[in-house]
């Protein structure tokens, strides 16, 4: 760990004043501290934002509002979230461990760094950690890596389950920085790796996530998150699916579908949504729609199984949601 300055401001204004391109905000610390110990992240200043008034879950006509500093566990078990957006509760509860969920913040969850083993191992090249050094995962152990949105510079998956659920729900992130507050749809927040995998989102230097808003969506009550992994708990997903269905009678009126564990960013599947809309709640519908899930997928040496697995994950999630009605 490199030496760093430390600040613990009490206001957003003060936090923004203390932040710059070389600083890092500290919330739950569940990613940052680990990566600092490994010297994967070496901020010159750590700004502890836990005293900032960025907490609170509420629901209004606009939708659901969540503070950036709300803890994963608090949001997961919040009555409003559980009732109106079960996909969010479930995505949170399937992530990490109870101890980590008690510490980790919502803003931090959206900004968590890659779980690619090469990203964390300083003895191996990694373009995300050290731009231009190369991507070891391309030819290395890549069973858990991405099949969608990859480039020859990076094939790491985006690790957040929450972000997958939020992308499906058209959520937006509220930001604040030296240029003032702004709101960005989450779909536009994350960047594809391209040739610049070290740039993961559109945050400007020193900019802070202050909260998120999930638009009102009445039929999000009929939603779920399914996560497939080798271990039954405490593991990042090989695949995952956030699904919400608006059903009238036995017909799907409208669907929301996003997937995780497969993309270099949380992956919305509009093509699958279109294929589901207007179709009956049948296995054939699910299977035909799921065919579109892997459009453009590029498998690597060890992860070709993710193509059938992703389709099956979707079919299973749709079946569970359809049957549960």
């Amino acid at each position: 760990m490199r030496a760093y300055d430390f600040a613990a401001p009490r206001s957003v204004r003060s936090a923004l004043d203390k932040a710059d391109a070389g600083s890092a905000y500290l919330a739950g610390g569940t990613t940052l501290v680990d990566l600092m110990k490994l010297e994967v992240m070496t901020p010159s200043r750590v700004v502890d934002i836990n005293r900032l008034p960025l907490r609170g879950v509420s629901l209004d006509r606009e939708g659901l509002h969540i503070g950036a500093l709300d803890r994963m566990s608090d949001v997961a078990e919040h009555r409003l979230v559980r009732t109106h957006y079960p996909v969010i509760s479930r995505a949170l509860e399937l992530g990490a461990s109870p101890q980590l969920r008690n510490m980790a913040s919502i803003g931090g969850n959206l900004l968590q760094r890659s779980r690619c083993g090469y990203f964390r191992d300083l003895s191996t090249p990694c373009n995300k950690r050290e731009p231009g050094s190369g991507c070891t995962a391309l030819e290395g152990q890549n069973r858990t890596h991405a099949i969608l949105g990859t480039s020859d510079a990076c094939v790491a998956t985006h690790p957040s389950d929450l972000a997958v659920a939020l992308i499906a729900l058209d959520a937006a992130v509220h930001l604040n920085g030296s240029g003032g507050p702004r709101t960005v749809p989450l779909a536009d927040f994350y960047l594809l790796p391209g040739q610049t995998p070290h740039l993961e989102n559109t945050l400007r230097p020193g900019e802070l996530i202050t909260g998120i808003t999930v638009p009102a969506l009445r039929w999000a009550v009929n939603s779920t998150y399914l996560k497939i992994r080798d271990r039954a708990s405490y593991e990042f997903g090989l695949t995952s699916a956030a699904v919400a269905l608006n059903v009238r009678g036995t017909t799907i009126v409208e669907a929301r579908v996003a997937v995780g564990g497969v993309g270099t960013r949380p992956w919305r599947l509009h093509a699958v949504e279109h294929a589901l809309a207007g179709r009956p709640l049948t296995a054939a519908t699910y299977e035909q729609a799921a065919e579109h899930a892997t459009d453009g997928a590029r498998p690597l040496r060890h992860n070709a199984f993710k193509i059938p697995l992703l389709r099956r994950t979707l079919v299973r999630a749709l079946t569970e949601l359809g049957d549960a009605r």
């Binding site: 779980r115 083993g117 271990r231 039954a232 405490y234 593991e235």
Partner: peptide
């Protein structure tokens, strides 16, 4: 390749 408790999976209670 799996030389960490994140990458080497031992069974958990579940």
């Amino acid at each position: 390749a799996n030389s960490s408790l994140a990458d080497y999976l031992v069974p958990v209670n579940a």
